[in-house]
Each structure stands twice: as C-alpha cells, then as structure tokens.
Design a protein around this nucleic acid. Sequence first.
DNA 1: GTAGACATAAACAATT
DNA 2: CAATTGTTTATGTCTA
Length: 630
Amino acid sequence: MMQESGTEATNGTANQNGTPPSVEGHREVRSKSATPSSDITASDLVNFQQQQALQVARQILLQQQQQSSAHKSPKNNDKQPAPQVPVSVAMMTPQVITPQQMQQILQHQVLSPQQLQLLLQQQQALMLQQVSAQQLAFQQQLLQVQQLQQQHLLSLQRQGLLSIQPNQTLPLHSLTQGMIPAELQQLWKEVTNSHVKEENSATNNGHRGLDLSSPSPVPPKNHNQHGSTNGQYISHSLKREGSTLDDHSPHSHPLYGHGVCKWPGCEAVFEDFQSFLKHLNNEHALDDRSTAQCRVQMQVVQQLELQLTKDKERLQAMMTHLHVKSTEPKPAPQPLNLVSNVTLSKTAPEASPPLSLPQTPTTPTAPLTPLSQTHSVITPTSLHSVGPMRRRYSDKYIMPISPDIVQNKEFYMNAEVRPPFTYASLIRQAILESPEKQLTLNEIYNWFTRMFAYFRRNAATWKNAVRHNLSLHKCFVRVENVKGAVWTVDELEFQKRRPQKISGSPALVKNIHTTLGYGPALSAAFQASMAENNIPLYTTASIGSPTLNSLASAIRDEMNGAMDHGNSNGSDCSPGRSPLPAMHHISVKEEPLDPEELEGPLSLVTTANHSPDFDHNRDYEDDHGHEDML
DNA sequence: GTAGACATAAACAATT
DNA sequence: CAATTGTTTATGTCTA
C-alpha cells in the first residue's frame, strides 16, 4: 500500500517538475524585473519628499558643523552633492524624524535663521506635494479597489446573481476628497489668524539681520548652479534627486505657482519670480509668525500622515475583506483570479500557476506571501507562487523561515501546495518548534504531514528526501536516545552552510546589516538567535508600509554596488519576501479539506482539526493516521 | 560554462 | 522477515 502512494507520488512529482518549473522560472524572472511602476508611484514619492527634507536638514547641519568647527572652505557650497553619502542613511531613517527634528531645530535654534528658513520652505513644499501625492496614491489604490469590485460585480452579474450597473461606483471619491488643499487653507487661516495681527509688529525683527533679505541680487543664471537663495537651493536639491513631482524650471519654487505665493494663507500674486522671491524673503522670513506657521503646518502634515495611515489600513481591510469573501464561495476556482487582481497585475500571472499543480481547489488562495509581493518591490521572491519545489530556491533568501511558515500555516495546512521551503528548512523548523528542540524521524514526518497538506501525499518521495536531508546536512545532528535516536539542529551549522551559496545575493540582509551596523559575523549569530526564537528579524523592513518596502528596495539598489559580494551571509533573511503581516489572517480557513484531497484514510491524518501547535500527544495519533495512510 | 544548493531516486546497511 | 531508519551515490534542475 505504501508502494502505491509511492508510485503515485512519483508520478505526481514528475508531472509537477515537468512543465511548470521552466514556465514559472520565466515568470519569476519577469516579475522580478518588471517592478510595477504603480507600486512605487505616489506614496513612495511622498517618502522621497520626506527624505529630501531630512536630507536637506542633514546637509545643513553638516555644513554648519563644518563651518563652525573648521571653516573648511567654500567648497561646501560647490560640494552639495557630496553629502550624498548620508542619503542612504537618511533613507533608512524613519521619516518620522522629520517633523520632530524640525521642531527641535526650531526650538533650539541650532541653525542659522537662514538655514532655518530653508527648512521651512522645504517643509512647505513638502507638505503641498504631500497633499497631492497622497491624493494620488489614494486614488490609485482606490482605483484598484474599485476595479476589483467591479470585476467582482461583473462576475456576479455574469452568474446572474446580481444586476447592477457596472458603473456603479462606491462613494470612494468622498474619501479622496476628504483632504483638499482648500481645507488646509481654511485650517491655516484659522490657525494663523492670530499671528497675522502680530505680523506687523513682528515682521522685521532681528532675524532679518541675516542676508535673507537680499534676494534680488541673485541673478537667475545661478539658479541652476548653486543657488544662494533658499528657493534656489531647494529647487536645485530637489532636482538633483530627480524624484520631484514638480518640475523645477529655473524660476520655479515650491511655494510659487501660477504667479501666486503658495505660502499657506498668503496667496499674494506676483508677476515675476523675482518679486516673488523678494516677497518670500520679506514676508515669510524667519520670524515668530513663520515659525508658528511652520509648526502648525507640521501638525497638519502629521494629521495628513495619520489620515493616510488610516486610510491605508482601511484600504487594506477592504482588500482583505474582498479577498476573503471572494474565496468563500470556493466551489469556483475564481478566487484565485480575484486574488491575483487584488494582488496586482504583476502577480496575476503567477497566481494562476495552479495549472502546474493539480492544485486543490481548496480554499486557500495563495500563501500570503505572494500578496506581500504586491507591495514589496524588493522581494526577489515570486517563489511563493504555488509551484514545484524548485521555486523554493529563493528560500535561501529566507533564512528565518520560521515566521513565514508560521504565518502561512493556515494556508499550507489546507492547500496542497508545495511549500516554498527547502526540506532542510522545514526539518529545522519542525525540530525547533518542538519543545525540546529535538524530534525523532517519525515525529518529523508527522510534523510535515500535519503542517502541510502537500505532504500528505507522496509520502515515499518526501520521506526519503527528509531522511536524505537529515543525513546529508551537518546541521542536523543525530542524538542517541533511550528510545532510539532523535534529531537536533546545529543552528550554527545551519547558518554556516548558507553563506557560501550565494555570493551576489540579494542585498536584503545588507539592509539589516547596515542598518544595525552589524558585521556579517555578528549578524549571523544574531540571526541565528532570532531564528531560533522565531523572531522575524526581517520584519523590520517588511512589516512596514508598502512604501517602506520599496524604500528599502531603493536603498538596497543604492547600496548594492558598494556592498556587493561583500557579504557572505545573511542573504537569508529577506525582508521583502516576508508576508505582509496585516494580511495574514486572510488565508481562508476551510473547514474540511477538499474531499478530493482526502482520499480515504488520508482524511484522518489531515490534522486539520488539530491545533497547529505542537502537542505532545499527537505523535501517536498521527502515527495511527499514518498507518491508515499505508 | 561552472560551481553550489537543492530535489529526487535508489541502493544498501543497520536497527527495530 | 518486514518495516523503519540512516547513509551514500547518482542525476538533474536552477541560480549566481
């Protein structure tokens, strides 16, 4: 009987390995390179804006430090691109800093008023851009949701379940229009009104003693080179980054548009840029009022950010909801499509590989991980797409496999989808999950069958593989026991063996390393302990917002050049590939497994009812289940 | 094109 | 004796 399953398995694997791998391989490659621009767009730009602000602040600080300490030379001015170095640092630094930092700067007068004004203006520009960028981001996301819903409705219509006009849209726009500049203006007026009165008396105070008031002398020609005025500087720096929304022509200024001063609550009209600059430096120079306005604006920005966060969550929830719902009427394999749609066009083609697998129309729509792909441009892993073991290749990027397994537990437990992890990783996970960090071979088997629907079949094949792996890898240590022998994991070995593998590996870890400032060696140990404790080390990068991910990706790209090959290890913990925590619960819990999947006795093994958590007694039970299987 | 990691298959020995 | 466990070898795929 065992034989039967064995041969069956062989056939099965043969098929699975046959066609799909190549096809998917291509897909994977494609998906890797085809970073959907839509992912990075608006929201990321917002981040960039913030980073730029921070960068400017840093540059200024740097310059000031240099000036105050050694007065190096006017070089600093020409060398504006030099501070580039910190860019990466700045990028990695949570943007949260920006406002607070600003505040501190304001309060402690660390900077010269002139520099301060730079910051203020930068901030202003940022906020204005943010508003539009955020709206843009929202609209895109909402558009996706809308499309999704429309598709859903359409499909329902086709099935005659619904008769609604496809055009019918949700009142989504109300969301997006919730934060319009007008409102901000209003807010501004309210807040600043009080200050306006003081304005007259306060305008020309000591601060102006600085050369702020000399905007005119600056010839337009210099604008592109090294601006000596605020606006110029900013526009220059922004341009250098090449990531601005605004087109900064020589005479452009974030606070100047359509002949109008965009300073909150100002709206003064100017015929030419020069007069605007004059106005800017005169009317909006660094004084109490401007400072206050800036503070307020910061609050506004924070509010906006908050709002953005909330709306993102809402969107997430909506998507989640739709996703789950769509899988509910599971009889149809449609869910998958839907998911892929939600997931993004990018993954769409991958979400359907089921072709390759006699996949169980079972529920689970796909490991969450793929969903995360959507957002994490970084992830070099489309591996999670259902597919043959080969896919697991990218597994090397995921050393702390544990979290991934745990997080997608539901999915793998119910879907007869090959887990994208190596046998070694799985074995390790099994062992580490055990209370005593040791398992007998049979217990390992049981863990496999319990945790993965996929391993409820093809027993002969994968069991052999498990044994083979146990013997082959040094990281698995066999320990004689009273009852016989148990297997344990030599974590160090486990960590050790991977480094050699990849040389030019994904730089994900690099992020972590650099971020944490750990050397490879240290980090190895660190990771090891993290992994051992099932702590998703990489979540730092993955957990965050999608934008964070793309941000990380950007960082990585940036650093790749410098650090390539430098790191022997760590390539294992990929932030990118980690599933999106927020979406974890999506995996649909299917009551019973697909009947088809549970051919006879197998159903007993399903363990689906068992809590996925380790239970000491289960071994015997499972054993029986196995016997049934034979 | 090559090396390394991995999956799979299978032969074989030792143990239960 | 059969099944299980463990080791080893061979082969093929995939990726860097």
